[in-house]
Design a binder for these strands. Structure first.
Lengths: 211, 211
DNA sequence: ATGATTAATAATGTAAACAATATTGATCTC
DNA sequence: GAGATCAATATTGTTTACATTATTAATCAT
C-alpha cells in the first residue's frame, strides 16, 4: 500500500477532529504535541496547520501559534444565512439536473434518518441530517458549488447547532421537512421545494434565537 | 516598521500574481526558484504554497510539486453559476442592510467605471467592474458570505473572462447594467434588482458560449 | 535519425538544528 | 498575600542538511 505524504496524514487527522468538535474552537494546536502524538516531524504538522489556515479552519494568534477558528454567535447567524444562500442555489440547479440515482440516494438517507431517530440513535440521525444536505448540494452537479459548500464550514455549523440546541423532539419535524423537500425535488416543483427549504432553515433560525 | 513573517510575504506575493494571471493556470511553482527570487528559505515558500493549497489556488501534481490551479471551460461555466448564486444571495441581504455610505461608494465606483471606459483605460475599467461586484457582496454585511466569495476564485474568473472575451463594445452595456442594479438597490426594489442582476450575468454567460 | 537505457541533475519530502520570542513560575518587595 | 521582576522553560519562526523521487541529458543499439 502506497503511503501518502506525512503532512497529508496529519492534515486529515486534525481536520476531522476540528469538524467533529473533538478539537473545539479556540483550542491551541501545539506543533510538538501533535508531532509526537502522530509520530512525525514538527514540520509535517506545521504544513498541515498551514493548509488548514488556508481553509480558514485554523487561525493565527496575534503572538503566533495556531488555534482552531472560533465561532461567535454572530458567526453562527451569518453561517446560517450563507447556508441558505448556497443550498437554495444548489437546489435550483439540482431541480434541473437531478438524476434518478440521486433521488434514490436521497430517499435512502431520509429512510436512514427515520430509522435511526426512531431507535434513539441520535448521533447517527444527525449524521444522516448532515448527509441529506450535502447530498442535495451534490445534486447541483456543480463542482464549484460543492467545493465552496465544503469550504464554508457548514458542517461545523451543523455540529455546533446540534450540540447547543439539540432536542429530541425536533427529529420528527426534521424528518417531515426533509421528505417535503425531497418530494418537491422529485416532482421538479421548484417554487415548492424552495418554500419547503426556506421553512426548514427558518425553524433552524428560530432555534438559534433561544440561546 | 514591524516585519511580518517571511512566509506571509511570499504568500501575499504569489497569491497576487495568481489572481492577476501573471502566473497563469498550470504554471509549475518551483520552491527553489521563488526562494531565490524573494530571498527567503525554501521552507518559507513551501509554507506559502501549502496555504494557497488550502485555498485551492494551487494544486498538487500527481508526482509532487505545486501548480497554479487550472481552469477548464467547464470550470468557468460552473463558476459563473456559483457567482450568480452568491451575488444574488448577497444582494437579497444587501437590500435590507445597505447604508447610505455603501450606496455612495457603489455610485462612485460606477462613475469611475464610466470615466475610465470613456477615456480608454480598459484595464482600469475592469478593475472598477470587479470592485463593483465585490462591493455589492460587502454590502450584504455578512462576513461569512464575503469570506466565501473571496475564497471562491471569482476574481480569477473575472480576469479570465475578460482576457478571453474582452470586447470594448461591452463597456457601455456593462455600465448601464451596473447602474440599473445600483438604482434598484438604492430604491430597495428587490425583485427589480434581482432581475437586473440576472440579466447582467446572462449576458456574461452568452459571451462565454462564443468560445 | 529514433527510441530505449542509464547516468547526471534537479526538485521535492522529511527531519534536525538553531535563533528569537512567548509563557511560565519562582523569587522578592512592599 | 498581591503584584512586580527576572530567570527558566516552552513554543514558534527560520534555515540548513539529508534522503528520496522526478526530470533531464547523454549514450548506445538498431
Amino acid at each position: 500500500m502506497k503511503s501518502d505524504s506525512l503532512s497529508l496524514k496529519v492534515y486529515t487527522e486534525i481536520r476531522k477532529k476540528i469538524l467533529s468538535l473533538q478539537l473545539p474552537p479556540n483550542t491551541r494546536l501545539k506543533e510538538t504535541f501533535w508531532a509526537k502524538k502522530i509520530g512525525v516531524s514538527r514540520m509535517a504538522v506545521r504544513e498541515a496547520l498551514t493548509r488548514l489556515l488556508g481553509e480558514r479552519l485554523v487561525t493565527l494568534g496575534t503572538k503566533g501559534g495556531y488555534f482552531v477558528t472560533s465561532m461567535t454567535h454572530e458567526d453562527l447567524l451569518q453561517l446560517r444565512e450563507l447556508r441558505e444562500i448556497l443550498e437554495l442555489g444548489a437546489l435550483r440547479l439540482a431541480i434541473m439536473k437531478v438524476t434518478r440515482k440521486d433521488l434514490e440516494k436521497i430517499e435512502k438517507i431520509c429512510d436512514d434518518f427515520t430509522t435511526m431517530a426512531r431507535r434513539g440513535y441520535y448521533s447517527g440521525a444527525n449524521e444522516a441530517d448532515l448527509r441529506f444536505h450535502e447530498t442535495l448540494v451534490e445534486c447541483s452537479g456543480n463542482s464549484k458549488v460543492i467545493q465552496t459548500y465544503n469550504l464554508s464550514h457548514i458542517p461545523l455549523f451543523h455540529q455546533l447547532l446540534i450540540k447547543n440546541n439539540g432536542n429530541e423532539d425536533d427529529f420528527d419535524l426534521t424528518d417531515q421537512e426533509h421528505r417535503a423537500i425531497f418530494k418537491a425535488l422529485k416532482d421538479k416543483k421548484l417554487a415548492l421545494a424552495e418554500k419547503n427549504m426556506r421553512q426548514h432553515f427558518a425553524r433552524g433560525a428560530s432555534l438559534m434565537a433561544l440561546d
